[in-house]
Design a protein around this nucleic acid. Structure first.
Lengths: 207, 207
DNA sequence: TGATAATTCTATTGCACTATAGAAAAATAG
DNA sequence: CTATTTTTCTATAGTGCAATAGAATTATCA
């Protein structure tokens, strides 16, 4: 009650973090499957074989859990994109890498990604804004690559960078909705979609 | 109780339908804004200035209202697409028309469209299947146009029709998430996205 | 081992929500 | 105007849910 520092500080802290993470994992899965409002804290507890009330030892509220899932779902997204945008490759190549990076998390963190994409709109004001800023940063990265590509002649100069960005992000975000049904690996999707984005569907050979 | 047909059949029936439609409109708006699980029947009633319990004179359940919103949100979608696919124009032109038709409902029925796209997954089994069949028909139409375009040389023969379909539908479906923020008319979006889909971002002029 | 702290449990509160029952009010018809 | 039907209302049952309180259990460590 007074000061129980020293030994009791490190070891339990680590276990708490580990358990917290297990709970967030379960929450991500439940939120991704049933939606935030459709999921109950009981669902999360069931998945872990623990009691509903026990969750509150680790989380203040269901909303807090959503915040954590979304934060983890968003983590690395922008960082990875900023890394790609600085790699000095041609704009075409960088754009393809951005597309690939955008769906890569679906491989090992699909629940987080889906929750982030579909449920972040239910976040409370403050964290929703934070997430919104991240989205805008990502969009800005896409737009920047597109503008650079236009400037150096790699891309058509009649492209609308904003609309192109929204088109490509929409295309990639949708992957989370069907890629578990369609048996096709993510890198193949990235390849096909990158090709489509760069070259379009039209045949330029003949005619 | 026995048979009160004749006069009492037509006039009230019509008013019931009208009121039902007003309620479905309100439901569509509320579902689109807060999601099916996040919306309450009270929210719907508030929008109409009526009591929550009065809704049940017109609907058996909240779920029934969702079914109706989704049905109306889906209506005309496939029909319009089938009409386009039969119009004998070049595949490129037909594809662009399909893209334009896909976002057209956002103009006058955004609430229905958004509910259909985002909330249909909460429909009960049966109606979810019905909606699923419609989606598959629409995808088949896209794929068919793409295959025809490949066959007659309008499209590249290394296109994957399935993946191209999913890419384009994803791109168009995403429009509903941002088009109210971005001040750009739908026909302009259709134009830009059609161009991107056909020709890609790359510059084929120089180099 | 015995004390202390960490974790999970049982039990419950209080609220929001869907849906039903039946009365009241409004509209319509004879 | 009265009777009948249609529509909306009040009141409430019943359920599920998030969250809290505090006891019981388990782990940690001297």
């Amino acid at each position: 009650m007074t000061r129980q520092l020293k030994q009791t500080e490190k070891s339990p802290q680590r276990n708490v973090r580990k358990r917290r993470r297990e709970i967030v994992d379960a929450a991500a899965r439940v939120f991704a499957e049933r939606g935030y409002h459709g999921a109950s804290t009981q669902d999360i507890a069931d998945l872990l074989g623990m009691r509903q009330a026990s969750l509150y030892y680790y989380f203040d509220s269901k909303e807090t859990a959503l915040e954590e899932v979304c934060a983890l779902g968003a983590a690395g997204f922008v960082e990875k994109a900023e890394e790609i945008v600085r790699n000095g490759l041609p704009a075409q190549e960088r754009l393809c890498q951005l597309l690939a990076a955008h769906i890569a998390p679906l491989d090992h963190r699909a629940d987080y990604t889906r929750t982030f994409l579909n449920e972040r709109k239910w976040l409370p004001m403050e964290s929703r804004r934070k997430v919104g800023r991240m989205s805008r940063r990502l969009e800005a990265i896409f737009e920047r690559v597109i503008r650079e590509g236009i400037r150096n002649g790699e891309f058509r100069n009649d492209l609308n960078p904003r609309m192109t960005t929204l088109a490509l992000l929409g295309m990639m975000n949708a992957v989370s909705t069907w890629y578990e049904r369609e048996s096709i690996p993510l890198d193949r999707i990235a390849e096909l979609f990158g090709d489509l984005a760069l070259n379009g569907a039209s045949n330029t050979d003949a005619d």
